[in-house]
Write a protein that binds this DNA or RNA. Structure first.
Lengths: 247, 247
DNA sequence: CGGTATTTTGAGTATCGTCAAGGCCAGTGG
DNA sequence: CCACTGGCCTTGACGATACTCAAAATACCG
């Protein structure tokens, strides 16, 4: 029923049926707003396909991205409060929406669902803190390296983001330059210069402005300097996939 | 029983008793390690008093702070996995430790406790993302302003951090300069220069290296430039407290 | 083929990082 | 009581980096 959501396929059938009953399947075009910061959270959303941006509208009208949501990630505030951040579709997306009140009822009657939400939240919290470490680097080259590695590990399973390419990896950058600039705490010009500096040193190849080839991921790890931040298991799996499909 | 932990006092007595039964009350001196990154999480900790640092040991041996834990904040990974970050006492602290397995059993039998943990996690996730926005500022002055405002709002109720002082606020900085530097993605020298630059413009007064007076908090909000990031209710309450106790 | 938006490049300036030195404070031991 | 020590914070000078503003190049789209 929810075979396509990581974790959800293991929920008891009854719970899956209950969720199914209140589930609204919605499609959003890239750029559409799904939830508004400041508004009371009236539903829980779970990403089925595509990539969502979690962001805050800055005072001057620009958008500041604070995270990306992909398959299985959820948003919305359980049991309380208003949204701190807006949620927008970064790509055309499909989202399962559950009315908050009804979702909470199911949650309270299913330790399995509850546990799933808890574990997801703990993971996301760790991921947010990983972002903090990437952001706290003083040099843009390092922040860019960290960003690319983050995509390679945390967003590894997301459709079309990672493309194996004869022992190398091609990575698609799923957000626009201005968004990436704000996410990494810099400006578009510096992003451009930083990427080209990495390319000049042979750490990456810029195939298109939003498509980066990483010939040797270890070099990028060296550039970042903190191998521990990235899950070695994910990296291993990634490299294994790369070697498996030499095209 | 747990009157001193925000949220816990509202749990049913039976749950409180169950928690009490497995609770180990532990004291840590400033600098002591409470949990180690990479180690399997074998207990859930909840801060009762003091301030803990959540941090990662960098490759060169330095510590990178990614967050502060205060009254009622929890750490440890429910149901799974190893700690992504180390936890250390920033000040002398008192922590309630619960063996993980037993805590999980209570959790599964109490929707109230479960709900409390969920809401806390959702809040902490928002807070981590707020940190990201503060970190993404390109200028140190702004990051410092954001840091001070963060203490004024999110850490408002923590002992001895905020001291009202005739229509102004005195803020204690609970971590050392090197830690603060890494938290804000810069170096100690820049922290020093940034604080003194803010002081030169009359936005703050440096009473001691770890004690900052904020004469007009609105000026600091202007400096940061994003008033929406900080909970206006918290700020109002803060100013009301200030005016209530004109000494 | 124009026209627009996005990305890149360039030049100048401000900011920050780096290295080195100096100041302040607390604790120690004479 | 005071000199000595070591840790932490501050200051200064210099070089590296990144931001700003402007213009050019490229991609995108009708």
């Amino acid at each position: 029923m929810f075979d396509d959501l990581p974790g959800f396929e293991e929920l008891p059938d009854t719970v899956q049926q209950q969720l199914q009953a209140i589930c609204r399947r919605r499609f959003f075009k890239a750029g559409q707003t799904i939830a508004e910061a400041g508004a009371p959270s009236d539903s829980i959303g779970i990403v089925r396909d595509g990539i969502l941006r979690m962001q805050k509208t800055l005072y001057d009208g620009r958008q500041h991205v604070v995270g990306l949501l992909v398959d299985g990630d959820s948003f919305g505030r359980l049991f309380s409060g208003t949204m701190h951040f807006s949620v927008e579709a970064a790509t055309d997306s499909e989202v399962y929406m559950f009315p908050l009140a009804q979702f909470e009822v199911i949650l309270q009657n299913s330790t399995e669902l509850d546990r799933l939400m808890l574990v997801n939240l703990v993971d996301e919290l760790d991921r947010a803190r990983d972002w903090m470490i990437i952001l706290a680097n003083t040099k843009i080259r390092k922040r860019l390296a960290g960003f690319l590695l983050m995509i390679c590990t945390s967003f590894q399973n997301v459709d079309h983001l990672i493309i194996p390419d004869e022992n190398a990896i091609k990575v698609r950058i799923p957000i626009s330059r201005p968004d990436l600039a704000y996410l990494l705490g810099t400006r578009v010009e510096s992003i451009s210069r930083g990427l080209h500096a990495l390319a000049a040193d042979g750490l990456i190849e810029i195939l298109r402005s939003d498509l980066i080839k990483i010939p040797r991921i270890d070099d990028l790890l060296d550039e970042f300097g903190e191998p521990d931040l990235f899950d070695p298991i994910s990296l291993d799996r990634l490299m294994k996939n790369v070697r498996k499909s030499p095209d």
